[in-house]
Amino acid sequence: MIIPAAQVDGLDKEFGTTRVLDRINLTIPAGQVTCLIGPSGSGKSTLLRCIAMLEEPSAGIISVGGRPLGFSLENGKRVKLPTAHNREVRGQIGMVFQQFNLWPHMTALGNVAEALKTVRRMPKAQANEIAGQKLDEVGLAHRRDYYPAQLSGGQQQRVAIARALALEPKLMLFDEPTSSLDPELTGEVLNVMRKLAEQGMSMIVVSHEIGFVASVASKVVFLDHGRVVLDGTPQEVFAKPRHPRLAQFLDTYLDREAVMLA
């Protein structure tokens, strides 16, 4: 059996009394792109952040590459895993944020090389060489000495992708990577992601770019009110007759598109 890139079993997340994720069960296939779609507040970002260990699940187990992350199940009881274990498993995950979150006091190269130097304890020259290669892969070799403030949003997001790739992750998480970009800058970021998908990277993408989702994803998960409503191939999910809630979601989405085009 092929080990899935990630596995989510019975995941709950509550903020106070609000249940944001409700019994999520999900298998993220390796070497493929899984897209999470759904209206805002449906829990898709929270789900992604739980997998990235940025939120602690209230219940349930997440495993990445076949190894539990954060908590494991022992004799039916959920136990916290040691920090060293979590750090190692988490090291296989790369995360890309909506707001890029580049460190403003470091150059593009510095951002990409940082974890290689401080976490992987690589000599500076070697770290910079790898960082340079990663920047080249996202088409920004010529911007290596620029600071984030000197880069466009699309360029910043590509640097952020290079930063995540520098650690050779097995699974890449994208949290609305193009949502804070001008429409004309989304293409360059989506192209980098498309290239990554072609190379066989396991990816989970939260996105409102329905076109990208339909063309790149091998699996689409539609979330609503913290629950998985639909889970299948793009053909299955987008096929007609549509699930009523998805139809409603896509309609408002298409309305917005129409307004933008008008």
């Binding site: 990235a52 940025l54 988490r90 460190w103 940082e114 974890a115 401080t118 952020a160 650690l167």
Partner: peptide, 8 residues
């Protein structure tokens, strides 16, 4: 969070 994600 970005720093936590790359393991700092």
């Amino acid at each position: 969070e970005a720093a936590e994600c790359v393991g700092l």
